[in-house]
């Protein structure tokens, strides 16, 4: 019996490495792409965190939701809970009294997260740069994916910038989020 087993062993081919049904793979890939487009390309929820603004940026951020600009039509909406958010949007300088709260909001968000710094203050401290009460821009709290310059940026500029960020990340859903700088816009 031993030789039979040995012969069998010698004659049989090594099993092909496990491979899923190509049709099924294609199907899954498509589904994943669709899912990631939803996750990273459409219907994104934004959690806004004011880290030390003058409230000008909040006014214009709110204006993106009015009848004229209607941010929601692009699949972007605001959520009160960081746990439901895909985008962390920071306005204002990194004020000393808000750094810890902003950090905790970021930590409460499930990855992947895109982080947006809205307004000149959030970019580098704006006019408040060098104040001892200010640590700097939002990038001193967490790495930033998109900077939207302006004091404050207009609702149109805000929406254009957010859509650019989403397009950049929707091209290849398997890719890590791409960092955009203001000059890319």
């Amino acid at each position: 019996m031993v030789w039979k087993t040995a012969l069998n062993h010698i004659l049989s081919k090594a099993p092909a490495p496990a491979k899923a049904d190509p049709a099924q793979v294609k199907d899954l890939r498509a589904r994943l792409a669709a899912a990631s487009t939803t996750k990273l390309g459409r219907a994104l929820a934004i959690r806004h965190v004011p880290a030390g603004s003058c409230n000008g940026c909040e006014l214009e951020l709110r204006a993106t939701q009015n009848l004229i600009h209607d941010l929601t039509q692009y699949g972007l909406s605001f959520t009160p809970s960081p746990r439901h958010a895909d985008i962390l949007l920071i306005t204002g300088v990194a004020g000393r009294n808000m750094i810890e709260a902003a950090r905790q909001a970021r930590a409460a968000m499930p990855d992947p997260v895109l982080v947006v710094a809205l307004g000149d203050c959030a970019i580098d401290g704006g006019v408040f740069k060098a104040s001892p009460a200010v640590q700097g821009g939002a990038d001193t709290i967490t790495p930033i994916d998109l900077f939207i310059p302006g004091c404050p940026p207009t609702p149109t500029q805000i929406i254009q910038a957010l859509l650019t960020l989403i397009e950049a990340n929707a091209l290849d859903p398997m890719k890590k989020p791409r960092r955009l700088r203001a000059r890319d816009l």
Binding site: G52, N55, G92, N97, A101, V127, A133, V134
Partner: peptide, 11 residues
């Protein structure tokens, strides 16, 4: 309050 303090007067 105080969370939005930016040091405006000192600036």
């Amino acid at each position: 309050l105080g969370y939005a303090h930016k040091g405006t007067l000192a600036l």
